[in-house]
Design a protein around this nucleic acid. Structure first.
Length: 404
DNA sequence: TCTGGGGTCCTAGGACCC
DNA sequence: TCTGGGGTCCTAGGACCC
């Protein structure tokens, strides 16, 4: 039985949503029509391009360029800050509209959805549904999408990436040679900057070359990734549209510091700030962590990470911080200039899965109560309304984004 | 390089057990 | 024990995605 899959991808999502939001608030200009980008903050050393308008693209600006580079490529470029809670709002609006077509929707990212339309189609063709969705999103929500129409997720995703914006593309089996095999191998989903040069060295330049290559040779050279890329090149993908919400596999936060830091005491304070945010998100999701991971990036962009299992799963700020601090002290080499600090928790389980300990632990119970009180205050007055003692200095160094 | 921040999955090597 | 092979768990790092 053939499945009917749509992949809906918002065109220049962050920039389009910003444009729609500005117009709604009375702006006279539509930033989609001028050279404009959504970018980070250069003064915070997070100055990269997150999204660009067509006009900015014409200047040669690419996503992840530095803002510095972007300005050189295009004088008169307008730069707007990012705003994740606003993006979430528009992402939800899109999702709600799509729910009118099927409840089998996988939210692949903030601006992409897979729809499993199998069995939902009566006499209408899949393509007509795609046209209707595209039109309604434009008229009712004010931004455009690309829609890929195919019989599996991989082909639908490849199709939505063809020409942009505001386009619908099909990629059915018989269209693969003409529409996909002619593309450079770098266009294939899951082939990134490390793998592509290796393939080109093997004289595999187009997706068609890859499709016709020997699967065994690829598997030998690239392992699982090798057989996957061969299957993708041949349009093979049996994966399901995961429409039921899944528990996250990990939760983490990181910050690029405004200045490099080489004092362990300051790094510890930053690790506390981040641990608190990670633990807060864990509790909000009603999850417990089994492992804590700390990541450091030096001024020379060398990344190291260390991780350790916790003696027992937990979501208290104190236990996560203590483990993170332990890891930091193990891995930090005195005198190293640190640019980025990250804390992440893995091996997550549901709160209700926790084994009831035979012995009560007064200290942990105390911490749990403290966290609960602080969480309630954060929920009521905003994440940054409450600060742990000893962390005041960090507030000056890093202002963490509202975790809500 | 004036190079973000949030994730997922895979691999390889070492520890440990039988 | 100058010592094999297989399984599992843990950790560090890498590749990829948006």
């Amino acid at each position: 039985m053939q499945r009917q899959i749509l992949h809906v991808d918002v065109n220049n999502a962050f920039l389009s949503w910003t444009a729609v939001d500005m117009l709604k608030k009375g702006s006279k200009i539509d930033i989609r029509e001028i050279p404009a980008i959504i970018g980070g903050d250069e003064s915070k050393r997070s100055g990269i391009v997150l999204a660009k308008s067509m006009k900015a693209k014409e200047c040669g600006i690419k996503t992840a360029d530095t803002i510095y580079q972007a300005k050189i490529k295009c004088s008169g470029l307008k730069i707007f800050p990012s705003n994740y809670s606003m993006y979430k709002k528009y992402s939800n609006k899109l999702y709600e509209l799509l729910l009118e077509y099927t409840d089998k929707i996988e939210r692949f990212s903030i601006d992409e959805c897979f729809l499993d339309m199998t069995n939902y189609l009566m006499k209408d063709t899949l393509l007509n549904k795609a046209k209707e969705i595209s039109k309604r999103v434009k008229n009712e929500l004010g931004f455009t999408v690309n829609i890929g129409v195919a019989h599996n997720k991989l082909l639908a995703k490849m199709a939505s990436d063809f020409t942009k914006p505001d386009k619908i593309h099909t990629l059915f089996e018989e269209e693969i040679p003409q529409k996909m095999w002619t593309l450079p191998v770098s266009e294939l989903f899951m082939l990134g900057r490390k793998t592509v040069p290796k393939l080109v060295n093997m004289q595999i330049k187009t997706i068609g070359d890859l499709a016709k290559a020997d699967k065994k040779v690829l598997t030998k050279k690239f392992g699982k990734h090798g057989s996957l890329m061969w299957e993708y090149a041949n349009g093979i993908d049996d994966s399901e549209v995961k429409y039921l919400p899944e528990r996250p596999k990990c939760i983490g936060n990181s910050v690029t510091l405004p200045q490099n830091i080489s004092e362990i005491e300051k790094l510890e304070e930053i690790v506390l700030t981040i641990s608190e945010q990670v633990a807060y998100r864990l509790r909000k999701e009603k999850l417990l962590a089994g492992t804590v991971n700390v990541c450091l990036r030096t001024k020379d962009f060398e990344d190291t990470s260390h991780q350790k299992k916790l003696p027992e799963v937990t979501n208290t700020t104190k236990e996560i911080y203590e483990k993170a601090k332990e890891l930091l002290n193990e891995m930090y080499k005195k005198g190293t200039h640190i640019r980025l600090v990250g804390v992440r928790v893995d091996n997550l389980v549901e709160e209700k899965e926790k084994q009831i300990s035979l012995f009560s632990n007064k200290e942990i119970e105390k911490q749990e109560k403290l966290d609960k009180v602080l969480d309630e205050l954060k929920n009521k007055y905003g994440y940054n309304s409450v600060t742990r003692a000893g962390k005041m200095n960090v507030q000056k160094i890093v202002k963490l984004k509202d975790a809500k």
